[in-house]
């Protein structure tokens, strides 16, 4: 049964017709064509679909789209400025070789963003905990950790 909901998406108020069984991942990719939200496992275990909802990172593949109603959702498409300037985390990922195939990158950047927004000066342990739900088959993780450390010192 479909219903129209309103929510904030990357800073803009949007409305969409949503099905009761739809996931936030399906809504973002299919209706809004935000394909930076990746589907890996579809079961909460890889983090490729990570988005930020009301300041908290979560896996959109198992989050009901209906629960986005009235909330604020940020995807990777919402990070760079309108002029195309990268977010400090995105620049740091590029500079530190934290991107290889790139499939896990949106999720890793958003998990890191949720951390830095709450805790601008995290310890390495805190960084590792924030990223523990994001699997990467390529980089070996170390470059990602280094990128987050580097970004932590910079103002967005």
């Amino acid at each position: 049964m479909k219903r129209t909901i309103e929510f904030e998406l990357n800073g803009q108020l949007v409305s969409a017709e949503v099905g009761g069984g739809q996931t936030l991942l399906e809504l973002l990719r299919q209706r809004f064509e935000l394909t930076g939200v990746k589907e890996g496992c579809g079961a909460g275990e890889c983090g490729a679909c990570t988005v930020i909802v009301d300041g908290r990172a979560l896996t959109a593949c198992i989050y009901p789209a209906m629960e986005a109603e009235g909330r604020s959702v940020t995807t990777i498409e919402g990070l760079a400025t309108a002029e195309g300037a990268l977010h400090p985390l995105q620049s740091a990922f590029v500079e530190h070789g934290a991107v290889q195939c790139g499939f896990c990158t949106p999720g890793n950047v958003l998990s890191a963003k949720a951390l830095l927004d709450q805790n601008p000066d995290p310890s390495e342990d805190e960084i590792r905990t924030a990223l523990e739900g994001n699997l990467c088959r390529c980089t070996g993780y170390q470059q990602i950790i280094e990128a987050v450390k580097a970004a932590a010192g910079r103002k967005p």
């Binding site: 979560l58 905990t129 739900g133």
Partner: peptide
């Protein structure tokens, strides 16, 4: 338990 994303919800 789980991961940060899972514990958040």
């Amino acid at each position: 338990m789980g991961s940060t994303q899972m514990r958040n919800v």
